[in-house]
Design a protein around this nucleic acid. Structure first.
Lengths: 232, 232, 232, 232
DNA sequence: AATGAATGAGCGTTCATTCAT
DNA sequence: TATGAATGAACGCTCATTCAT
């Protein structure tokens, strides 16, 4: 259970590596993460980070040449870590496609109840609307998540054309991630997350299994037929 | 199509009405909304807002005695407007329960493709994690949305116990709202939103119809059975 | 007892009189006085005054073309009122010179226990160091007070040369006014003011009576002889 | 002659010492003192202080976490320095009680002719009416001054009961300090200060010597008898 | 590697003042 | 007369950043 996978943050040096010691580097990023989680993006100031890790503000500029740099590194660490945890969950897998999909759904929904995930991702979503770098990294992250889900969806329903599969997969991911806001850490429906896991798994697995090619053909808004996948 | 329902923002005076002119009041709130949508919360400064509406920074303090006040009024306007648009969509309704539910799903998914909705709500989600006022208002907003959805879900499947219905309803809302991040304005899956509307409607309506009492009983994580709702 | 002689403030129009209604004029000055007494000079803002008298800030600029003007008018009102109350006290007089002097001393010491006097005069003293207008008006005020005291001192000891008399008179006034800070309204020695009145009267009357010409001849500092006025 | 004892200001670090460099700390306080003396409390702004010591406004916040803090430190420096100079004057003493008292009176009257003292103390008196911290510090300062004077008064007239002695001492201090406003730096009677020193010494020493227990018994106002201390 | 010190820009806010109505 | 609205300047303060040590 990913109770706290951020402690496992892997801080990958970019572009030839950071010039100086790795320890201070990680120290700062962990402090930044902590501030972001505890106090939000507005409070993510160099002084705040410095205080959290016992350094002085000036010294942070020694490790990161600008705050933007630091934020980017933090973004990378967070995204990379999230990717890694999904990867791991996928590997733990299960015995058959449906079970694998179910388990991955459950894993995602578990993860978003984490304080870190609940607090960080909405910040990233907000940032991504005005910061192309965040936007791109987030798209990459969700792209990789999409690959994993898409593979499982294909295994569950091999007859589904790739494009239709892609969309339904995207919707499933959107649904799961979106649950953060409603049943994440400290949210109103947090206590119902176990039931939601059951519901999500049942709902999406059943739907994927029952889908037939052409089912997701778009209908004009207002004329969307409320119908189950076309009976075969 | 709610291409731009924020221009229709109703600025409801609080506390017996604002003492000062309603015009400047709305002018400022519209400017603030515009800044928030265009540049994000970080750029929501008094000077930024002032520039956007052709005033000077000091003058905004004449209308709102603090920035907090302004932000709260903006929050109220945004939330109230969203509530109103949902209300309206519910009224437009449809001929039968399934159709009503389908239409409401479609409406929500339409609305989140709006630039305003796509840009504002993630900001609110992020803020809500550290600002109790935002959190509370958001919970109220989604609480009202929940009431509407819950009623339709009940009409579609009257046999479902209220508590189970509440959870599945919450999950549906979470799924729809969460789609903002993936298929909202400017997002990767934006172009697939029509298909997603179809998918969401099919998936959730079918699931709700098929649900039997006890289906959403929580299963131990890792042992979630990938099963369709128990066949009746 | 001058418990509240500021309500008797006479607002004398200057230089041809103020163009408009006397009522609003006085209203504003009274409010300004009230703010000054209650909250100090720092809080003496147009908005503060306006709030206190139920007007709007802009309207004050209609009566006083600048805040400086208002402050000057307030200064005039306060100083004039203080002068008037001294005048009155002098008139109430007494039956013989010593008694007159004693009574005037007692009056001054009574007056400075007033909340208004205790709060306003230190503000004026402070202002006078950097504002020539305040300085000049204060000098005029104390000049007039000096005239009254000087006359009584002369009556008590007619043999004293005018210049020596002037200095001892000035010292008496300084001593009395200075008591504001130590035994004025809310001050540590406030409760001992009755005894101080006795002490001041005894001390100064006795000294004045005993003075001989040349007594106050300055001695080099550090060599000041501690001696009573030269015994005749 | 204490022409300028403020340059000797000892800036005592509070709370275990200031974390930052002592030099800049003192630089700022000296600049603040200079601004206060030269331009008054109204002009005591961070920007003004900064300009005076060649720093930028923001940097002052590095040394003092708030302006209040700075003002408090300045208050402490000023008060402490005044206390120290009195202490020193007391030590320089004299050969007998009367001479000691005379010398202390002369010292105080000398000190208040200093530009700094003349300009600063009225500001403090004014502030003390609305700022409890200033009020308290000032009371402490004058309390210490009172101790010194009270001891000398006791030596001059050992028969005087402590309570009566306390009041007459307080009055003497009030008289001396109050002279600031009339014969301080730049004041009308400044040139007569030497004579005032003689007068004050003669007047108060003679009075104290002649006092008998019960002399300062309060009389009903308006009935204060103008009488010398009861003849023994 | 780390700090203390400094800076310039910008923040929210308050203020005296102006002006059309 | 009186108000609402607006302005420009200044306020205390925070911030990211720089740089000598």
């Amino acid at each position: 259970m990913p109770e706290a996978h951020y402690p496992n943050l892997k801080f990958v040096p970019r572009e030839g590596g950071y010039a100086r010691g790795q320890e201070g580097f990680e120290l700062i990023l962990k402090a930044a993460l902590s501030v972001l989680v505890d106090q939000g993006y507005r409070a993510l100031t160099l002084r705040g980070i410095a205080k959290d890790c016992g350094l002085k503000a000036g010294n942070i500029s020694y490790y990161f040449k600008s705050k933007d740099d630091l934020v980017r590194a933090l973004l990378e660490a967070v995204a990379g870590s999230y990717e890694a945890s999904i990867e791991e969950a996928v590997k733990r897998g299960g015995d058959d496609p449906e079970r694998k999909l179910t388990n991955l759904i459950a894993f995602i929904l578990d993860d978003i109840t984490t304080r870190q995930t609940t607090h960080i991702f909405p910040e990233l979503w907000a940032l991504s609307n005005h910061d192309p770098i965040v936007k791109e990294r987030l798209e990459e992250l969700y792209g990789r998540e999409h690959v994993h889900f898409d593979r499982l969806v294909r295994d569950v329903n091999p007859d589904l054309p790739a494009d239709e599969r892609g969309v339904v997969t995207a919707f499933i991911i959107a649904a799961l991630e979106g649950t953060t806001v409603f049943a994440g850490y400290g949210k109103s429906w947090r206590a119902s997350m176990p039931q939601m896991q059951t519901i999500a798994a049942q709902c999406f697995v059943a739907y994927v299994k029952a889908m037939k090619p052409g089912d997701s053909k778009a209908l004009a808004t207002g004329a969307v037929a409320a119908q189950a996948p076309s009976p075969g």
